[in-house]
């Protein structure tokens, strides 16, 4: 094994605390939905949505790094997993969301409310 197997119990609980706090913040913001965050727009969507997305990525980072022990793997393994997935996902999401916006702009005028 490339990494030493020292006990990580303390770190596990710290990460659990972090993930819990992030989730509580998300739920709190989701319930409160402050107008200044929810009804304004920033780079295509509301700042609230950006906060949710960033916090989600932060959670994903902690789960992968601490729980899945990515931090203990060799750099090459880490990169081949994370970079390929992140690249492909960004590519797919970008194209599909742009296309979704196009579908809306084409079809919405045809819907009579």
């Amino acid at each position: 094994m490339a990494h030493a197997h020292e006990s990580n119990t303390k770190r596990i609980w710290v990460v659990f605390g972090l993930l819990s706090v992030i989730t509580i913040v998300e739920v709190f913001l989701g319930i409160e939905k402050y107008d200044s965050l929810h009804l304004t727009s920033f780079f295509g969507t509301s700042p609230l949505n950006w906060i949710f997305i960033l916090l989600t990525l932060l959670k994903a980072y902690y789960i992968t790094w601490a729980f899945m022990h990515m931090e203990g793997e060799k750099k090459a393994l880490r990169r081949s997993v994370v970079w390929s997935a992140v690249f492909l996902i960004c590519y797919l999401v970008t194209l599909l969301l742009i296309e979704g916006g196009y579908l809306y702009s084409t079809l919405a005028p045809l819907v009579k409310w």
Binding site: S84, L92, L96, Y104, L107, A108
Partner: peptide, 30 residues
């Protein structure tokens, strides 16, 4: 290693679903 292979491919599967959800939501955004 094989578990990581599986996880990457499964992650892409789920991303495909969520991205399709995103596309459809954008299509009916109003």
């Amino acid at each position: 290693m094989m578990m990581w292979f599986f996880i990457v491919s499964d992650a892409l599967t789920f991303s495909g679903f969520l991205a399709a959800y995103g596309l459809t939501r954008f299509k009916f955004i109003d």
